[in-house]
Design a protein around this nucleic acid. Structure first.
Length: 676
DNA sequence: TCAATCCGTATC
DNA sequence: ATACGGATTGAC
């Protein structure tokens, strides 16, 4: 007999079903393998959770339809983890397993060599290659143990790596210093763990980070010791790499969020880099966050954990506050030596003058810093929050945001501006006019519905226009841009202007001589619980690319706490503040929140049927901003300790609804990222 | 009294 | 989803 998890998204079917195994399939039906079963009349995919001698099911059992593969794609460790993740997020096991296991590719499965007997391939081999400034990898007492000089900037760093190599489970929140070569440090932590005979999983936000880490690992570990999993990889290659790890040919897996479930046996370390990046939140039900999944995994596997970044989230701070993890932070002297100078320039100019003119967006401090950098032969990084040319325009006289006359979408300029009635002050006249960002229609005959004005002004300036302006302000200096669609990985040393949107900043080979952070108000005025934390994260990741003898200029009010945090390079201070504030307001991670989204009737129906734990605080429901008509959201707030009970109650209630074929859906999310 | 239909519930 | 059972309804 086999205990099967059927691959259906229905919450009331979130339990194992027993099937008889025909003798002919016996060998192929392995724990963790894929099967096909007849379920309620239809054929569905499933996973073998267990082989059992007897069933507790009273009724008749069916036979398995087909043993799809003898590859145990769901190890007991991953099954347990997936169950824990489903429970935490009020979701079902099948949904989590769908995130954990890539689609099967038969050719790839046949092509990967079979599991190496006993010792996994590559284990015990001395590392090869060179780390950092020429420290040779390896030490006499432990083959493959990397040099730890890079970690000595952090008082607890060397001890942390030693603990990894010794097979212990140290848990840390690591705040990297500006200029830190984080991929090299992570590669060393990976090497240390491998040297102790255990495996590693590393999750990074995006393909660029993955690529950089991939190269760093290649340098530290040599060929064939790790694989990279990412959604960007094609199906065959993706499954090949998955099976390569599953069969133990590599012990280290790096990747974007889907790699959080990577099949690594005998796990010694999990790492998440930049856990504040919202791409770590999976957009598929039950919407698990890579940090939470990895930390749960570390706990279940008895593995070490490293929450890494230039910034620190309130969630990271909570790990320290509860004593779950320890802090890995540089001492003040090291930080001072590595940090660039940070200057603030008030952004009042923004309001008082035409924001389209480069001189008003770039205060003289910023211009001076840029000039000094270029004169010294160093590139200048300019961070602009919005891409495009002029992504938002307003009436020149009354400043009402300009909207499309057809669909009320926001108007934007793709390039300069047409002369005549609807012109933008300060823009060159030979280009096309404004158009709608939603429906794409041109809006050349703009007339302001409020005051009747017929001229437009830029209300937000995008990266592309900034690049134009910078090129004019610094004639003869090459201008590069990096943003969505056209990403630059690195820029060579030498005078250049690099205009980038947040997250797209290229790494400068010798560091930037100046980093200019413009239009900071666009990040800070967002109506979001995490606006401050997110702004600091973006600024720090740009500022971290500056040389220690360079200058960072932030165009923002120096009195704002989050700006202070940047000036002092103190994300720890800001995170502690942020966590206190969340506790006061009653928001995650200080409390746990269940979010129900749907029609008011559907939400009421679910809540009425839910056996909610005592003391639940109900907020709302309120209409969802920017959502469809009639869609509302109810928040259910409980102390963290009641989180599991809340999730259980919501999953159960969703199950009752789906069993009764409620037609209106309710989306259930636990601690969603957007709360306001 | 029987059969067509509706509703609720289980799905191994 | 589909499939089945028990209750309900309607026609003979």
């Amino acid at each position: 007999m086999a205990r099967i998890c059927v691959d259906l998204p229905l919450p009331h079917l979130d339990r194992p079903f027993d099937y008889l195994v025909p003798a002919s399939m016996d060998a192929k039906v392995v724990v963790g393998g894929r099967v096909r079963v007849r379920f309620a009349g239809q054929k569905v995919d499933g996973y073998v959770l267990d082989r059992v001698a007897a069933s507790e099911h009273g009724g008749n059992l069916s036979f398995l339809e087909r043993a799809v593969s003898a590859e145990p794609v769901v190890s007991p460790e991953i099954a347990r983890l997936a169950r824990a993740v489903a429970d935490r997020y009020a979701g079902n096991l099948a949904d989590v397993l769908r995130l954990a296991v890539p689609p099967r590719h038969a050719r790839a499965e046949a092509a990967v060599p079979p599991r190496a007997g006993g010792v996994p391939a590559g284990d015990g081999k001395p590392g090869s290659g060179i780390v950092g400034d020429g420290d040779v990898v390896g030490s006499p007492d432990r083959p493959g143990f990397p040099a730890t000089a890079g970690w000595s900037a952090y008082p607890a760093g060397a001890a942390y790596l030693r603990a990894l190599a010794d097979g212990r489970a140290p848990r840390a929140v690591w705040t990297a210093t500006p200029g830190e070569d984080w991929v090299a440090r992570v590669a060393e932590a990976v090497a240390a763990t491998l040297s102790g005979g255990r495996g590693v999983v590393v999750v990074v936000p995006d393909g660029r980070d993955l690529h950089r880490l991939d190269r760093a690992l290649l340098a530290v570990l040599g060929e064939g010791r790790h694989v990279a999993l990412s959604a960007a990889t094609g199906p065959e290659e993706r499954y090949t790499r998955f099976v390569t790890a599953l069969r133990g040919h590599v012990r280290a897996v790096i990747g974007t969020r889907a790699a959080m479930f990577a099949p690594v046996a005998d796990l010694g370390l999990v790492v998440i880099f930049d856990d504040g990046d919202d791409v770590h939140a999976d957009p598929h039900a039950p919407y698990p966050h890579a940090r939470e999944v990895l930390l749960t995994r570390a706990e279940l596997a008895g593995a070490a954990a490293l929450v890494a970044g230039y910034s620190r989230t309130a969630e990271g701070q909570l790990l320290l506050a509860t004593g779950w993890a320890r802090e890995l932070t540089a001492d003040r002297d090291t930080l001072r030596a590595r940090a660039p100078r940070v200057l603030t320039a008030g952004d009042d100019v923004q309001q008082s003058r035409d924001p389209g003119a480069v001189t008003s967006r770039l205060p003289s401090v910023a211009l001076q810093a840029a000039r000094a950098s270029l004169a010294g032969g160093r590139p200048v990084l300019v961070q602009v929050p919005r891409r495009g040319y002029i992504p938002s325009v307003a009436c020149e006289t009354c400043r009402t945001p300009a909207r499309c006359p057809h669909c009320s979408g926001p108007l934007a300029l793709e390039s300069g501006v047409l002369g005549g009635t609807a012109g933008v002050a300060g823009a060159s006249p030979e280009h096309s006019g404004p158009s709608c960002r939603w429906c794409g229609r041109g809006a050349t005959g703009f007339t302001c519905p409020v005051c009747g004005g017929r001229r437009l002004r830029a209300s937000v300036v995008g990266a592309r226009r900034t690049a134009d302006e910078m090129g004019r302000a610094f004639a003869g200096v090459p201008v590069r841009t990096s943003g969505r669609g056209e990403l630059l990985d690195t820029v060579p040393d030498g005078p250049a202007l690099v205009v980038a949107t947040p997250g797209a900043e290229p790494v400068a080979d010798a560091g930037y001589g100046a980093v200019l952070l413009l239009d900071t108000w666009a990040l800070l005025t967002r109506a979001d619980l995490r606006a401050g934390e997110e702004a600091l994260r973006r600024w720090l990741s740009a500022a971290a690319l500056a040389r220690s003898d360079g200058t960072v200029v932030i165009v923002a009010d120096a009195a704002v706490p989050v700006v202070q945090a940047l000036v002092r390079f103190d994300p720890a201070w800001y995170a502690a503040r942020e966590l206190d504030e969340r506790a006061e307001l009653g928001f995650p991670p200080a409390v746990r929140v269940g979010s129900l989204t749907g029609s008011p009737a559907a939400i009421a129906d679910l809540v009425a049927g839910a056996r909610l734990p005592a003391g639940v605080d109900e907020l709302g429901p309120v209409p969802v901003l920017g959502g469809d008509e009639g869609v509302e959201r109810l928040l259910l707030r409980v102390p963290r300790s009641t989180g599991p009970a809340l999730a259980r109650a919501l999953h159960e209630a969703a199950g009752v609804r789906s069993a009764h074929r409620a037609k209106e859906p309710v989306r259930v999310q636990i601690d969603p990222l957007e709360l306001l």
